[in-house]
Structure formats: structure tokens, C-alpha cells
Simulated scan of single mutants.
Amino acid sequence: MQPLNWGILGASKFARLFMGPAIHAAHGARLAALATSSADKAQGFQAFCPDIKVHTDYDAMLADPSIDAVYIPLPNHLHVPWTIKALEAGKHVLCEKPIAMQTSDFDQLIAARDKAGLLAAEAYMIVHHPQWQHVRDLVQSGEIGRLVHIAGRFSFDNRADTENIRNRPETGGGALRDIGVYVIGAARFVTGQEGSDISARIRKENGVDVFSEIGARFGDATYSAYVSTRMHPAQEMVFHGEKGLIRVVVPFNARVFGEAQIEIHKANHVGGGTVTTHRFPADDHYKLQVEAFVRSVREGVDYPCPLEFSRGTQAMMDQVFEVARDL
């Protein structure tokens, strides 16, 4: 079977450090091209993929008949138009999250995907990680009994990087769009349910949200989470049931923030407790994401994170923005 030839639309730092190497390493994939007008930025990709073809503009990449799929790491506000342009050019698309700025954008994306008969998806990598698949299976099988509460947090501090696209409203910045998708999407993925009874408080700086506190329900379980781009780095998800608790130690940046681990806390018959830890030291969710994409394209396997799933996360995020009170 021929490998899926990939092109990257834009030489972002994230693409250079993570997704470019993941595509290059993934089974069934070949990193073939990069679109950038910057020779300096291209060198960073040539360092690990010497044979990569460099296009000097995005349209030239889309016109390249040798490219089967494109990965789009552009600023948030450019995701929808370039995803649609790539589909219209006959390319499969994996686009960075958030793939859209509001739920209504998904109507255009899904229509373009269906018209082209190609795969288009958001690069929501955590659902491809075995730690999250294991957590979902444990919770849904009743391992911790009835789920009572879900808690999440994700934060880092980028206040010093004033030109960062995450700090600029015109590029779709803000903590919710950048990392809120993780604490929201993780709860949706594990429970298989949608959030309801949503409440929120948001603090903004220079037109972007830098701290958001969210309350909700997922079925019978209550939910609380916060995200921030103005706090000491932290991340954690906890699923607390009547008969046990599951703690996801490094839920979102596995192998970068630390080792992926799941702690399963259970009571024992003598009144004490036990903690069972499952470790996932070697799994690269970026590489696994690319391989899942390739299988879907080449073998017709259902993709684990279709646009319909991403649409649900965006719908909850839209509700958070709508009901939020200012801090």
C-alpha cells in the first residue's frame, strides 16, 4: 500500500516540534512537502526530513498533485477557510484545534467534507492516546461505580509573549479556544454525554479570555473545570465515582509535561484504600493520531474524532461564552 503523502500548510513552531516529526515517523505516512515563504523556518523541518519539498505559498501546496493530505497549523481564524480550500483542491485535511470559531462553522465544514468525499478532522490528539481510551472504558464499564463528579484543570502562563496568537483577539486567541477544548472534550469523550446546566466566569485581558471557570453536568455527574493562560503550569482530570476515583495525571501533554499515568483509587474491605497506577511512557498521541487518519483514508476505518464530535465540544464552548459572567 502506498503511503499517504502529507503536506504542512504553514511552518509553525508546533508543527516543527510535534506534528511534523509525528507525520514523518507515522506508519503509512510520508511527510512530503511544506508551504512557507520563510527559508529559515523551512530549515527546521529539513533538519529531520531532508527531502521535504518547500512550496513558497499555500496555494502552490494545494495545487501539488503529489500531496494526498494536508495538516493545517495556522492561526485559529484561518482554520475554516483553508480547510475548505484544501478539500476543494482534493486534499484530505487534519486541522489544528479549534478547527472552528463557533458551532455554525461546522455546517460549512461538514458540507465541504461530504461534497468532496474526503476526510476532514480536527487534530484533537488525546482521544487517540491509550490512556484516554482506557479511562473511557473504565468509567463506562462501571469500574468506579456511578460517576458523581468530574474535575479538570489546564493552565500555563504566556503573559510575557504578547505577540503570541493566543494573546491576540484578531487571531482567535484566548484560553478557552486553546486549552478549554481539552477539559471539555475529555469529559464528553469519557462519558459519551453532552454538558448541560452550564455556568461560567471569565476574566479577560486585551480582548482575550485568560481565565475561565466552568460548571456543568454530564448526565447525573456534576462537573467543574478551569483553564488559564496566566497561571503556573498544571493539568489534571479526575473522574470521581461512588466506588472509586480515576485520576489522569498528565492528561493533555503526555511526554512533554510528564509521563502519562492513570491512578485508580479504590477502597478495600478493611477500611483503607488502594491505588493502582497504569503508565504509558512510550505512546505518542500525535503519531497515533496520524496513523488513525491514514487507516481511515486507506482502509475506510471510522475516524475516532469526526467533525461531529468536534462540533459538540464547540457547542459547549459557545454556551460557556454565552452564559459567562465577568470576573
Rank of each mutant, 00 (worst) to 15 (best):
Leu34Arg: 09
Ala63Gly: 15
Val54Cys: 08
Asp40Ala: 14
Ser38His: 11
Ala47Met: 14
Ala32Glu: 15
Asp40Glu: 15
Ala60Ser: 15
Thr36Val: 04
Leu62Thr: 08
Leu31Trp: 05
Ile52Pro: 00
Lys41Ile: 05
Cys49His: 04
Lys41Ser: 15
Cys49Asn: 14
Phe48Val: 06
Ala42Asn: 09
Ala33Lys: 05
Leu62Phe: 05
Asp40Arg: 07
Met61His: 10
Ala63Lys: 13
Leu31His: 12
Tyr58His: 10
Thr36Gln: 09
Thr56Asn: 13
Ala35Ser: 13
Pro50His: 07
Val54Thr: 08
Ala33Trp: 05
Asp64Ser: 04
Asp64Gln: 09
Ile67Arg: 07
Asp59Arg: 11
Pro65His: 14
Lys53Met: 06
Leu31Arg: 09
Val54Leu: 04
Asp57His: 10
Ala39Val: 06
Asp59Lys: 11
Ile52Gly: 01
Asp59Ile: 05
Gln46Asn: 03
Asp64Asn: 12
Thr36Leu: 02
Ala35Tyr: 08
Tyr58Gly: 00
His55Val: 00
Ser38Phe: 03
Ala39Glu: 15
Leu62Pro: 12
Leu62Met: 08
Ile67Trp: 07
Thr36Gly: 09
Thr56Glu: 10
Gln46Arg: 15
Asp51His: 09
Ala39Leu: 03
Ala63Glu: 14
Ala35Trp: 08
Ala60Cys: 10
Leu34His: 08
Asp51Phe: 01
Asp57Glu: 13
Ala32Asp: 12
Gln43Gly: 00
Tyr58Leu: 01
Phe45His: 05
His55Cys: 11
Ala33Pro: 02
Ala35Gln: 06
Ile52Glu: 10
Pro65Leu: 08
Pro65Asp: 12
Asp59Thr: 07
Cys49Ser: 15
Ala33Ser: 07
Gly44Leu: 00
Ser38Trp: 06
Ile52Lys: 07
Pro50Met: 07
Ala35Pro: 14
Met61Gly: 13
Asp57Trp: 01
Ala33Leu: 00
Leu34Gly: 00
Ala60Leu: 09
Ile67Ala: 08
His55Gln: 11
Asp57Thr: 02
Pro50Tyr: 06
Ile67Gln: 12
Cys49Glu: 15
Ala39Lys: 12
Phe48Asp: 12
Gln43Val: 01
Asp40Tyr: 10
Gln43Glu: 15
Ala47Thr: 11
Phe45Met: 04
Asp51Thr: 12
Ala47Glu: 14
